[in-house]
Design a protein around this nucleic acid. Structure first.
Lengths: 257, 257
DNA sequence: AAGCGTCGGTTCATTATTTGAACCATCGGT
DNA sequence: ACCGATGGTTCAAATAATGAACCGACGCTT
């Protein structure tokens, strides 16, 4: 692994749950020598990607990422496009909508929109990492990944998040076959208990899957009517978002739509 | 220079004016061998920091920066805090307000707020880089930087942006002395012609200057009344923002306020 | 269509950087 | 006073980065 990759990997260990990381802890998390971690963090710090916070000298993400994100958004206005689509989805279905994107082999939630129709709703955070096997979004993406990548993902150990998480590769294969037929993925309680999520894949200009949009509702509220409403809204929303982002649905999928 | 720093330096060459950069061009801009640029870009690409766009295979910033920015904002909600303060400033003064932050030795505009009171107004972009000598924000920050850094900045060649840009180190020294006295920096037409900008420094928890907030108005609209209104609003806004961000004004400055 | 310049990408021997075990000094808890 | 942890530093050994030259492809001009 190159040094640069290693340095950037360090940044992946910052999460919402762990926004501050000390030197030794970082070395442990990333599996590198403490001296190496120190040198890499120092370089990241000089570039403004991390900074040292407060008393314990722990590291956290720095302001440089804001500049880059601002530029990215100016170049590819994805957040903006997605958030209007998600807003519509959340409003029409009354449930929580979110978009996740494929980033370096992982699926990361990037934008979300909550509905205020119900007192209870599924809450979402941006920047959280989803699994391929346990979430609707994950299945939606997995179904349209190139076969070698599917194989790699399914042959690695699949951690169950809840008692209902499907971890048997064979059953997941069946699930993604169904996703390919219908264009919509579904997962009940696979990531968080009592959450029923539907998702539709998003494709880029080269017809590769780049992420998914999803709607997550409490299991208790799911009815056949809501289910078909959600699936219809998702299909429409996904198509619109793909258009806005300049993407294309693969040819072999279009007839079904 | 470390390899990581070199890789991150590549990212600095993406700007609003140049969001797409080809391999050879990047090598030229960054002053590295084409093979090196290729390897670094490939590593950045695998981490999602850049991606290859469209037909000419040019590179642009990737989606990974969005995740990091989202996390940074969750950890240090600076944009949010700043944008409410800037909103108030823009509303009370009727002019454009913006915040710039020190990042790796450069001053980068991070958030801005426009006023709708007048038909003409100064327009701003996020993520643009300001010079220390030609802008109000630059002078506000420069005045409170450690002496060695001031020296380094003033001994490098200072490019004039307009005919009115002050580039004589001696005169700049005088300007920042005045900034230290009053706490407010001022620059007329130094960056863009016909723009009169006022700025106040922002300090972090260790009393180091971390950036500035500024108000930019058309020269034609500047009157003694507006000027004192702006200076008062800026002083108040800066103090509030410093509080919200958990910073402290250096002890030797406080008596003056 | 031949020539030219540029592009993105690749190769490989040389070189310079990264690496990691061991080492400090410091801090908080027992 | 000790223990175990922390952030940070050192230096010889190992490894990864480097850059000149090269490739095929593309778009011009002649």
């Amino acid at each position: 692994m190159g040094t640069v990759t290693k340095a950037l990997t360090l940044l992946d260990h910052f999460t919402l749950a762990r926004p501050l990381i000390g030197l030794s802890e970082m070395a442990r998390l990333a599996g590198v020598n403490k001296a190496t971690a120190f040198r890499l963090l120092t370089e990241l710090q000089n570039a403004g990607f991390v900074e040292q916070a407060g008393s314990a000298r722990e590291y956290r993400l720095g302001p440089a990422v804001l500049r880059l994100a601002s530029l990215r958004e100016a170049t590819v206005p994805m957040r903006e496009a997605a958030s209007t689509v998600l807003r519509t989805l959340a409003d029409t279905t009354g449930e929580t909508a979110h978009m996740s994107l494929l980033q370096g082999g992982r699926l990361v939630t990037t934008v979300h929109a909550l509905s205020s129709r119900h007192g209870t709703r599924v809450t979402m955070d941006d920047a959280s990492v989803l699994t391929f096997h346990g979430t609707g979004s994950g299945l939606a993406v997995l179904a349209f990944l190139p076969e070698p990548e599917i194989k790699a993902i399914l042959s690695a150990p699949l951690k169950p998040h809840t008692q209902e998480t499907v971890t048997d590769p064979k059953r997941i294969r069946e699930q993604i076959a169904e996703v390919r037929r219908s264009g919509i993925a579904e997962s009940v309680g696979g990531f968080e208990k009592d959450v029923h999520s539907h998702a539709a894949p998003i494709f880029d200009a080269e017809e590769r899957v780049m992420g998914a949009i999803a709607i997550a509702a409490p299991v208790a509220r799911m009815t056949p009517e809501l289910r078909s409403e959600i699936r219809a809204a998702l299909a429409k929303g996904a198509q619109e978002l793909i258009n806005r982002l300049g993407g294309h649905v693969p040819a072999h999928l279009r007839p079904a739509a």
